[in-house]
Simulated scan of single mutants.
Amino acid sequence: MTPEQTQILASVETFLARRLPPAEIRRRDAAHVPPYDLLPEMGALGLFALAVPVPEGGLGGDWATVALVQDALGRHAYMAASIFNRVVGFGLATIRAHGSAAQRAELLPLLMAGEAFCALALTEPQAGSDAAAIRTRAVRHEGGWRINGRKTWISDAEGARWLILPARTGPEPAGARGISLFLVPTATPGLAMTRLPKVGNNCMPSFDIGLQDVDVPEDALLGEEGRGFPHMMSTLHFSRASMAATVTGAAEAALRIALAHAQEREQFGQPIGRFQAIAHRLVDMRMRVDQSRLMVRHLAQLIDQGAPCRREAAQAKIIATETLRDVADAGMQILASAGYAAESDMQRLWRDSRLYTFGEGANEVLRDSIAREMGLTTRGMA
């Protein structure tokens, strides 16, 4: 790491130790308290402005530094990493790439300061990995747009200032053509949210959203009309890189918990880590985490070079999320009853990890995408 990166990470560690000590992480998880109150301090530290060019008001850093921050956040508390990624991977990346001059001027300073964030409202009851199957529709209405439809499993929607919402504006009933992106304020009349109960990620609440005659002005359109699908695809590598770096940090945390337990827990007169079955399992966990981190850093390098990286972003997301899933599961086996206890940090990592292999693109669908880039024909996505 460069001296500047070392300094940035030191400030992140200090911030996390003060705002999210272990007892506070457990309290928030048990009470389902999201980390939105952390945003202004993250903004004051300059974390959201790291990879934004100086002419746009940012610090002009690189994605490699962002990935290091995401790894550190994920290792300490995934809740902090998830809200960081909401700002960086969804909001800043999309608005910088496709926002109008007026939208960039209004939103970028708020996002970089941690004063607001956006939630991506993509998934619908019949559209998830098949994003082109969305049915929510926007029609022109009195100088703006009227939106009707339903979105579901939208993370952090209630705390967001805006939804980045794809809707059909063309005549096509399905498919990638005729989809447009909109910036919809969450306070808009006609927009109703219902919180969805789930088994993990308690500090990242998800919502079912109904849109009934939701009227937005003409300038709510984000990017070009009818090009919402390629707009979404063009910035996906940022969100996938964000998830990969974050869950790599979480996998590191699971490994450290398991290793500490194996060194302290004694059975048959010696620490259990001295038994070959446990030692080899921990070695495999160490190798998986290191491989994931190397993939994340390779992807960050490609992003900083401006090189095409759709395949590498998909690979990094698959490798990292499956690493966390498997490392957390192995950690639960090593800790046994100690890991299954409600107050255990391992059980939180274990149940939370199950989301990421299908969140933000199911790994099976990403494998289909990689197969097509390899020139293979699959029966998956069209």
Rank of each mutant, 00 (worst) to 15 (best):
R18T: 14
R19E: 14
R19Y: 10
P21H: 08
P22E: 10
A23T: 08
A30K: 14
A31F: 08
V33W: 08
P35K: 09
Y36W: 11
D37T: 11
L38V: 09
L39Q: 03
P40E: 06
P40Y: 07
M42K: 03
G46V: 04
L47D: 09
F48A: 00
A49Q: 12
A49M: 06
V52I: 10
V52A: 04
V54R: 15
G58A: 05
L59F: 04
G60Y: 04
G60C: 08
D62W: 00
W63A: 01
W63V: 05
W63Q: 11
A64P: 00
V66R: 02
A67K: 00
L68W: 03
L68K: 05
V69P: 00
V69M: 10
Q70M: 13
D71W: 06
A72L: 02
L73R: 01
G74M: 07
G74P: 01
H76E: 00
A77R: 01
S82I: 12
S82R: 12
F84W: 03
R86V: 12
V87K: 05
V88H: 08
V88T: 12
F90G: 00
F90D: 11
F90N: 15
G91H: 03
G91R: 03
A93V: 13
A93F: 10
A93T: 13
T94I: 10
I95G: 04
I95W: 05
R96V: 13
H98S: 10
H98Q: 09
A101L: 13
A105D: 12
E106R: 15
L107N: 06
L108Y: 05
L108H: 11
P109N: 05
L110P: 00
A113H: 09
G114D: 02
F117Q: 06
L122R: 13
L122H: 08
L122A: 08
T123R: 14
E124I: 04
E124P: 07
Q126S: 11
Q126N: 08
G128S: 08
G128H: 13
G128W: 14
A132C: 11
I134H: 11
R135K: 14
T136M: 12
R137T: 15
R137V: 11
A138Y: 02
